[in-house]
């Protein structure tokens, strides 16, 4: 009954966006390596992984939102709020503990996410307008109430610095310099795994796919739409909280105007990963690959002879090209535009 032979599997693989994205990443990496042989070294890959883990974690959040048929542009404001408040609380209380920082940052994240969730699930405000408004409120409130002063490396509690330097697997280069696999990468992988488990093995996760597929059917089947939407935005807040702490630990510095403004590259990574913008379809693996592609591209701009000024341009281009491909595909598969909207 169920076909299981090899050619069938290959056919299925060829249908998936991830396959093509993977091939593009490989080809591009080889190209970059031909320009600079150190690109494909383990050290550089570990380094890229560490610096993009925060973005990857935020991308997971955006992925879930797009999956449910919405959009979120307030997650960067949430991330910086979590980070900056956590750092300030740690300094003020004198508690120098990274878990405490995570706790505060995530609490802030979940609370702000809950506000989004409430506005979207209860008041049925379009997700774009909601998050556009809350992004402004969250960030403005942070700067007004908590402050605008940057926290420099000297003021920063040690736990952040220690956490940022923590490597799990330490290797030594021939010239004697140590490098290693940052704990950031492990956190990112664990969160990706957790999200995958939620999406695949819980009723809640299937509910997210269901409301992205057909929200009316989901309601009739007995899914609690409001609850699911509420969860989604709280979870995005939680992820943003974690990303905030990773960010401060990475750059050993906290400026309350950082992170905000990077929404575009995160959204670009997710749509590049093949998540369908109309909801209901997309994979976590695709999202990870999207993040990898955007990271490699950003990282290699200078290598291919373009200044970092080109970054915005490419991010915009990535969004346009990838949504154009998926939109055009779905437009064609629906057939004549007349029959459906």
């Amino acid at each position: 009954m169920v076909k299981n032979n090899r050619s069938f599997k290959i056919q299925k693989l060829l249908k998936q966006n991830e396959t093509y994205l993977f091939l593009v990443i490989i080809t591009y990496s080889i190209f970059i390596t031909s320009l600079n042989s150190s690109f494909l070294s383990l050290e550089n890959l570990f380094d890229l992984g560490k610096s993009s883990a925060g973005m990857g974690i935020m991308a997971i959040g955006v992925f879930i939102v797009l999956l449910s048929g919405g959009i979120d542009i307030s997650f960067t404001a949430i991330a910086i709020s979590g980070q900056y408040i956590a750092a300030n609380v740690l300094i003020a209380s004198g508690v120098d503990n990274i878990f405490f920082a995570f706790l505060i940052s995530c609490l802030v994240g979940v609370a702000l996410g809950a506000i989004n969730g409430l506005l979207i699930s209860y008041f049925k405000i379009p997700t774009l307008i909601t998050t556009l408004g809350t992004a402004s409120v969250f960030h403005g409130a942070l700067l007004t109430i908590v402050g605008t002063k940057a926290i420099n490396s000297a003021q920063l509690p040690d736990c952040f610095k220690a956490f940022g330097a923590k490597n799990l697997l330490i290797l030594t280069k021939p010239n004697g310099i140590n490098y290693g696999l940052s704990i950031f990468i492990i956190i990112f992988i664990l969160l990706a795994l957790l999200t995958w488990l939620i999406l695949k093995y819980t009723m809640l996760g299937r509910g997210i796919y269901a409301i992205g597929g057909d929200i009316d059917s989901a309601e009739r089947s007995g899914f609690n739409i409001a609850k699911i939407q509420f969860f989604i935005y709280c979870y995005v807040g939680f992820l943003a909280g974690i990303a905030g702490v990773l960010h401060i630990s990475l750059i050993r510095y906290s400026n309350p105007t950082y992170i905000v403004g990077t929404e575009l590259s995160v959204i670009a990574a997710v749509v590049l990963g093949g998540t369908r913008i109309t909801g209901g379809s997309g994979t976590i693996i695709g999202t990870i690959m999207g993040v990898a592609m955007v990271t490699i591209l950003n990282n290699s701009l200078i290598l291919v002879g373009l200044s970092s000024y080109w970054q915005n341009f490419f991010v915009g281009l990535i969004i346009i090209i990838s949504v154009s491909i998926t939109s055009y595909q779905s437009k064609r598969s629906i057939g004549n535009i007349v029959f459906r909207r």
Binding site: L264, Y309, W310, Q311, F313, V315, G316, L317, I320
Partner: peptide
């Protein structure tokens, strides 16, 4: 959103 990135880029 994409063209926003593109134009400002």
């Amino acid at each position: 959103l994409g063209t926003m990135g593109l134009f400002s880029g």
